[in-house]
């Protein structure tokens, strides 16, 4: 379990980092918190020629309130999101989700950008980005572009990032006063990747829910919106009958793996939908 040889660069500016990424293309990997990448190096499942360590790049770790969004820098550590009053006030979903990520030692190092760029389908933060309609800010040699979370996560460890591009931040739209969120996940042990997880968002309209977004994770090759189930809930009061119809409308096709069969995952997704949406409506 020793990593193969690699070159290591620690640029001090964003331009320097982008230049290195442009020069090395597919042979470079970005090192942020290293909580997944270092293990992958040691297991020799990743063998990049060059590691570009962005930890010294200034300005990438900020969590800031803009006019219409909360901007979370790629290097913001999970533990910082956990402690951030700004996140707690404006993005309570994120504040809740982040406590489910692994363990304190990992949250001290692991970064928001690292989690999104790795795109593990069972990770919490990509699902939150999807539920809250965040945009991912990508910077490359040719400039900056914004990609909606729904288009950013493309598959198992696959994103819209192109060779030479760096994920620098995510912008979460400021939720309105009637917005509500709820989060739940089912894991065998606290801190494990979830068997099934759900990050949910809606607008409350009296007793009914509108703009319902149910972002499931751990059930596909990327976080997915359960659109049909959300459509059942849309504009309706949340009661047992509606919930049952929403569960029936779930069209997830989770695969079985070591930790749970496909049937169990399907069932758990339904249970989680009921529990999380009940909370959403409260």
């Amino acid at each position: 379990m020793k990593a193969p040889r690699f070159a290591y660069a620690r640029p001090a500016t964003l331009e320097g980092a982008l230049a290195l990424l442009a020069a090395h293309g597919e042979e470079a990997r970005v090192l942020a918190g290293g909580q997944s990448l270092v293990a992958m190096l040691n297991l020799r499942v990743a063998a990049p020629r060059v590691l570009v360590d962005i930890n010294r790049v200034p300005g990438l770790g900020e969590v800031a309130l803009g006019e219409s969004c909360v901007r979370i820098g790629a290097l913001a550590r999970h533990a910082e999101l956990e402690r951030s009053e700004l996140v707690a006030r404006h993005l309570p979903l994120l504040a809740r989700a982040v406590r489910h990520i692994a363990h304190p030692a990992i949250r001290n190092r692991g970064t928001f950008g690292g989690s999104c760029a790795l795109a593990d389908p069972a990770a919490e933060l990509p699902a939150c980005a999807l539920a809250l309609g965040a945009k991912l800010v990508l910077r490359g040699a040719r400039g900056e572009r914004r990609v909606a979370a729904g288009e950013f996560f493309r598959g198992l460890y696959e994103t819209a990032l192109e060779a030479g591009e760096l994920l620098v931040a995510a912008e979460f739209p400021l939720p309105g006063p009637a917005s509500a969120s709820a989060f739940g996940e089912l894991a065998r042990r606290h801190g494990d990747y979830a068997l099934v997880g759900l990050a949910a968002y809606a607008q409350r309209d009296g007793p009914a829910l509108r703009d319902v977004r149910l972002a499931f994770f751990g059930v596909a090759d990327r976080p997915v919106l359960a659109a049909r189930a959300a459509a059942v809930l849309e504009g309706r009061r949340v009661d047992e009958a509606t919930l049952a119809r929403a569960v029936a409308a779930l069209d997830l096709e989770p695969r079985g793996d070591l930790h749970a069969s496909a049937a169990t995952r399907r069932r758990l997704a339904g249970v989680l939908l009921e529990r999380v949406v009940k909370e959403l409506a409260q």
Binding site: R188, L195, H259, A260, T264, R267, L268
Partner: peptide, 8 residues
Amino acid sequence: PITPDVVL
């Protein structure tokens, strides 16, 4: 082991 699969 008594997993969720086994109990369900």
